[in-house]
Design a protein around this nucleic acid. Structure first.
Lengths: 159, 159
DNA sequence: CTGCAACTGTCGCATATGCAACAACCACTT
DNA sequence: AAGTGGTTGTTGCATATGCGACAGTTGCAG
């Protein structure tokens, strides 16, 4: 009797695998990324009215020299239409300059203007402060581990 | 001469802090989350035409009993409007049922229907398979560490 | 040189999203 | 009992997004 009841329960349970949402890595990744980015994006959103995509483009261009839109797409795992529109916005804001490549007239070389570089300096400072808070919270060791793991994931799954 | 040039370069550099985008945790988090979720979401998107938000709600409701929209918001770090619309979609699809709470007529208790449970079983199986792939790629140890770190981040920053 | 496949960035359209405003409702005070 | 502040879920609106179609361009095969 009792045994049968158990069987029924188990039968009903059998439809469920023993899947645990709270251990599911894509879920945890999204939660952590969303919560973190929501907090951080407030710092530049209010200050410069900047999109996340726009922030990323600024960050990439601030790193080094001129980049092409496609290169930014690849590095940042972004859609080309997203980049295209974000770039338009930054150009209107005078933070960014386009120059059609001499070697390939389809491609446009993107680079920061003077004021773009100034804004980037502020953004970088904000970012570094935020990063330090996170590292302090996690501990430097674990923060490095985390960075390593996240990088592997992004690389591995990339097409 | 050479020295002066260097100074000039360093002067220009000085505007840049030594910020390195590739070590910036919010950036890495977003990349990893985006790349991972893009891969995974294909599995249910094409099969059930389901949104990421809808998947999440299914997953939460599949875990246990009935939940209120607000509870789902809190657990999944989602906007209430997002949840509201996702729930409407799931209800139209017959996967989910609403029942106004007897103790609070504002709140609605959400629970899966029979077909909702069946769909959830498939989703859970897909998820588990995906999880195993990820764990195999990272190694079980490191996967657990990662989960732990991500959980901390989501908790810490949460309001 | 011509044709052809692949690539670059833009745009239109349908959908998804965030935010604020909103009505219905609750708990608590006076 | 009526008022007040706070909560729950929905909706309108402006914006952001993904996807596919597109014109302009390149490089290569024939």
């Amino acid at each position: 009797m009792r045994q049968l009841q158990c069987d029924d329960v188990l039968g009903a349970m059998a439809e469920m695998t023993d899947f645990r949402l709270n251990d599911f890595l894509p879920y945890l990744l999204n939660n952590a990324a969303e919560v973190t980015s929501r907090t951080f994006s407030a710092s530049y959103r209010k200050k410069f009215g900047m999109t996340r995509a726009q922030w990323r483009i600024m960050a990439h261009l601030g790193q080094g020299g001129a980049l092409t839109a496609t290169e930014i797409c690849a590095r940042g795992h972004l859609e080309k239409s997203k980049v295209s529109r974000a770039v338009s916005g930054l150009e209107e804001g005078g933070l960014l300059r386009r120059m059609t490549s001499s070697s390939d007239r389809r491609a446009e070389l993107l680079s920061l203007t003077e004021s773009g570089r100034k804004v980037h300096a502020i953004l970088a400072a904000q970012a570094q402060e935020f990063q330090q808070e996170m590292e302090a919270r996690l501990g430097p060791e674990r923060a490095r581990h985390l960075a390593q793991l996240l990088d592997e994931l992004a690389q591995a799954e990339a097409d």
